[in-house]
Amino acid sequence: MHAFKYHRPSSVNDAAALVKGEAKLLAGGQTLVQTMKLRLASPSDIIDLGTIKDLAGIKSDGKTLSIGAMTRHADVAHSAEVKKAIPALAALAAMIGDRQVRAMGTIGGSVANNDPAADYPAALLALNATITTNKGKHEADKFFKGMFTTALAADEIITGVSFQVPRRAAYTKFKNPASRFAIVGVFVADFGGSVRVAVTGAGAGVFRQADMEKALAAKFAPESVANIKVKQDGLNSDMHASAEYRAHLVTVMAKRAVEAALK
């Protein structure tokens, strides 16, 4: 790892003021520290968000569920509040990485990083989430801009994520057996009248599957999506899975997600 200057700000404003040049914000560090060790990232400055108060926490008012940016995956997975409001979201958090990683990794870090195979972006997109930052708010639909890219400005810091509570929802993931990242993951959310389907792992970034959303809005049942063929154009192809295979998995995972949501 290359040398850097370490900062420990006590507020989000102080943290934002420190962002300059090649500085990087550090949340849980479960991606960033490893990336730095491999010298894929060599920031000049590390701004540790870990000691800023009030960035972690979970609140629900029945219609929306709000999670602070520094809330760890394990805390989301075990939260009674999350399990009650959106059990699919607690289940998703419990599927991220392994339990040691879940003890450190944060929702804000995952969302800001926007790994194309990460789990949380699918939940944000399917649950019509709002991302709150020190500068304002972003709708999930306009936030994820493809591989490792988001609508965040350089000195913009995520403070929390608010999810719309659906009538029912489920997330199913076909895991890479080594990394536990999604080869394909599908989050289905039924809001009663409208349905949102978000796919992670398959493409350069998370995306919605409009034809499935339409079919499920008409009838929320596994057979509504079972025969929808997903085009392989633009999907990822690598040593783990071809684009053709990933396209097929989107349909399979969507069908299973609907089955799980109906249980």
């Binding site: 550090l26 560090g29 520290v33 990683v101």
Partner: peptide, 15 residues
């Protein structure tokens, strides 16, 4: 009280 991977964090994060 929580199991974490000590190779995946900076010492400064354990202050």
């Amino acid at each position: 009280g929580k199991a974490v991977k000590s190779c995946s964090m900076l010492a400064m994060q354990a202050e």
